[in-house]
Amino acid sequence: MSEVIVFFFAAAIILVGAVGVVVARNPVHSALFLVQTLFGVAIIFLIQDANFLAAVQIMVYAGAIVILFLFVIMLLGVDSAEELDVDPIAGQRPLAVVLGAALLGVGLTVVLVAAKGITGARATAGGEHALDNGLSDVERIGRVLFTEYVFAFEATAALLTIAVIGAVVLTRRAAAADMLPDREPASFELPPLAPAIDEEEEH
């Protein structure tokens, strides 16, 4: 029963935060609502005994990704509150809500009506993959990650390196940026010299 209470508590946190992300005018408020949602997801992970993922969720998402969002918001200026009252493309909002409701309906149909329970093979009891094999959460994930998924793990390292290089290349102020056609070239005109007449008049 306590699990049910915690579930509804976490679900309320998640859904309120998710709606807040979408409807908040100020991007900073959106980012803070996103933190709320991510904490709720961490609680959901904890209910299911995914302790490692809950910790990683807090550290990576709430600790790193949202901070990155906030950094960029501050860099671009916080005064860019979006005007939510106007609808630049006529009918975009109702259409989006209808599409979202349709997506929700399809998903609920699949989960609750169409699918006859969960299909798929259960892990061998007590095996490397089984959640009841007596290992701790971190040890179980580590053993599988560094044996069966080791190639994907190495590919992850390459992906992160590429992302870092890409971010540096994209945000670097290129030396040739001033030569782009829509930029004014740097002006080298000096201000007009002060007339040197006064000096001669004194003689």
Binding site: I14, A18, I44, S80
Partner: peptide, 24 residues
């Protein structure tokens, strides 16, 4: 859990379609 996930996914999808600020 699956119902919670589909609710959250739909809210995110609507947000992606409605909002104009690239950050949001």
């Amino acid at each position: 859990y699956l119902v919670l996930a589909i609710l959250m996914f739909s809210i995110g999808a609507v947000g992606l379609m409605v909002r104009r600020n690239p950050l949001v």
